[in-house]
Design a protein around this nucleic acid. Structure first.
Lengths: 106, 106
DNA sequence: ATTTTATATAAACATATGGTTATATACTAA
DNA sequence: TTAGTATATAACCATATGTTTATATAAAAT
């Protein structure tokens, strides 16, 4: 692949918060406010991280009324599956969100 | 894997020069001055990039008299092969080095 | 229409990063 | 031992990055 594209990809992954987001989205699509809830960070901060991931084509978005749901993309990277598979399991965090009624939605 | 370790790995890969180094080392081990020669960058700059790659356990070093040869490591990362395979082929650069007598060594 | 909710963007700031120059260290050769 | 070569480290600086606060946009609810 092109080095510039690869650099953008790895820059996007070179941050703990963004790896957390990818690890979460691996389980299911989530909207911004759900990520804010789980990661305990401010909404603008999460939004900017999502923008980087989107620019690198690692996630895609889908609007549903007032919510924007993000999900894993990365199909342009032949190695993406191997990388995502090495991320920690975060299903507990998602369960927590659901248990606390934070899901369905915001 | 641990998010901290993964973050360090992707940070190390999140730079065009370091991806170039990895792409070169994929062909064969090289010493610092050979990388300086091929990449046309200053020696301290190359050395600092190599240090980052080494700290992330993406490369390892081997001393042979006054030269230090770097080579690919990355064995702690289950995804490393897939990632290295997507790097561009740089054999032409290595051939150039050999043709110009820059090899054997420094 | 106005207010509320969800998200994005902008400005400001502190910290991280990469490059340069200068210097230190390690080994070789004489 | 001294000079030369290969590499590492340190100090400095400019740019990039991530966070916060404030504000803008877009859709929903009233």
């Amino acid at each position: 692949m092109e080095l510039d594209q690869l650099t953008e990809c790895y820059k996007a992954m070179a941050d703990k918060t963004r790896l957390n987001i990818l690890a979460l989205l691996r389980h299911e699509e989530l909207c911004v406010c759900e990520l804010v809830d789980i990661l305990k960070m401010t909404q603008p901060s999460i939004s900017q991280h999502l923008r980087k991931l989107k620019q690198a084509k690692l996630v895609k978005e889908r609007r549903n009324s007032q919510w924007i749901f993000y999900s894993i993309d990365g199909e342009i990277y032949p190695f993406i599956k191997a990388n995502l598979d090495s991320l920690p399991d975060m299903s507990a965090k998602i369960e927590e969100l659901k248990a606390s009624g934070g899901k369905v939605c915001c």
